[in-house]
């Protein structure tokens, strides 16, 4: 498949009074055309900063790209000027945010918000843009689109607002859609509708999707590839099935086990990852997860593990994968189904 996005050795930091926060510490990954990639991890692990850097939405200063390149469709995003970036943002890549309530403009009609990017980027005449806005609303499954197009966001329910957000994001048929926790604020039945919608639209429009979520059910539903992030680094990556059925990093095990499965009953405790993620002002030299890892060895504290390839596209940054490391059996039967 053709590469759409290639992120290489990306490092993003923020300068604050207390010092430099190293939010993203050397992240490399790619997204192919028409592919869905999920980024999972706890809050503060750098997943949002990573995608906001790709969209160049982080405030600079205090944020800055310390190192690395973001090649999107042949251009290095990290080096574009703000003016050039304006042409990319909204037309070639766009974003759906977590909270549809605060990310729509309450003083603008929904139709006008959809038409805005069409008029700006594609120089479409306003009348035609309005027609297109109605089409987009129909596409995302909003009934009565002719009437809804002239309404304000407060007249929409939460699920419909998120649909409208998706309509805005897809108006210019972008090549890449970034969805940052798109369903977290929604109820389960509405979440199911939105996930179905995103999958349908992707098939129709062949858009690539990066989805950020901490809901592993959503990942299993939508993603083809998964990146697991921890403390600003990708610690494991692989195909959906590899990550869920053959996870190799102890942190991934912890994530998968902390979700109750239907077989788990009340007599058993949920597995939890004790402790908290490290301070990103002074991240540890070795593996950032070592302090919370029950399998940690001496080397884990001293050197950051290199990426070990354990399968086709499945890479793990963990010293346990080293040939000299003791063999550790993944904890079976505690909520993880391992093949």
């Amino acid at each position: 498949m053709e590469r759409l996005l290639e992120v290489k050795d990306l490092e993003v930091s923020f300068r604050t009074y207390a010092g430099e926060i190293k939010a993203v510490r050397g992240v490399s990954f790619h997204v192919d055309r028409g592919e869905t990639v999920a980024i999972v991890g706890e809050s503060g692990c750098g997943k949002t900063v990573t995608v906001q850097t790709i969209m160049r939405l982080i405030p600079m200063p205090p944020g800055f790209i310390k190192n690395g390149s973001i090649i999107f469709d042949g251009k290095d995003i990290a080096k574009l000027s703000e003016k050039e970036m304006e042409h990319v943002r909204g037309s070639e890549m766009s974003m759906v945010f977590q909270d549809p309530m605060t990310s729509l403009n309450p003083t603008m009609r929904v139709g006008a918000q959809i038409a805005e990017s069409l008029i700006k980027h594609q120089k479409m005449p306003p009348k035609q843009a309005r027609e297109r806005a109605i089409e987009m609303l129909k596409l995302v499954g909003i009934p009565n689109a002719e009437k809804r197009v002239d309404q304000y966001p407060h007249e929409f329910s939460g699920g419909m607002r998120q649909r409208a957000m998706i309509a805005i994001a897809l108006a210019c048929s972008p090549k890449l859609l970034i969805a940052d926790e798109p369903t977290t604020a929604l109820d389960v039945t509405i979440q199911a509708q939105i996930l179905d919608l995103m999958r349908d639209l992707q098939k129709k429009l062949n858009t690539s999707i990066i989805i950020i979520t901490h809901n592993l059910g959503v990942v299993a539903n939508l993603a083809e590839r998964v990146l697991v992030m921890y403390a600003g680094k990708i610690i494991e990556r692989g195909s959906l099935d590899e990550i869920f059925y053959n996870p190799r990093h102890p942190y991934t095990w912890g994530l998968l086990m902390s979700v109750p499965t239907s077989e788990l009953d009340k007599s058993k405790r949920l597995a939890s990852i004790d402790g908290t993620p490290p301070d990103l002002f002074a991240p540890p030299v070795g593996c950032a997860f070592a302090a919370r890892c029950e399998y940690a060895m001496k080397i884990c504290y001293e050197r950051y593990p290199e990426d070990f390839t354990v399968g086709d596209g499945h890479r793990v940054a963990c010293w346990l994968m080293h040939p000299m490391a003791p063999e550790v059996k993944p904890p079976v039967g505690k909520g993880v189904t391992l093949s």
């Binding site: 389960v188 979440q191 199911a192 809901n215 059910g217 299993a220 539903n221």
Partner: peptide, 15 residues
């Protein structure tokens, strides 16, 4: 029934 079926399960096969 609808509510239960709407929950995404963290298991790709089932999904």
């Amino acid at each position: 029934q609808a509510l239960l079926s709407a929950i995404p399960v963290p298991d790709p096969e089932t999904e």
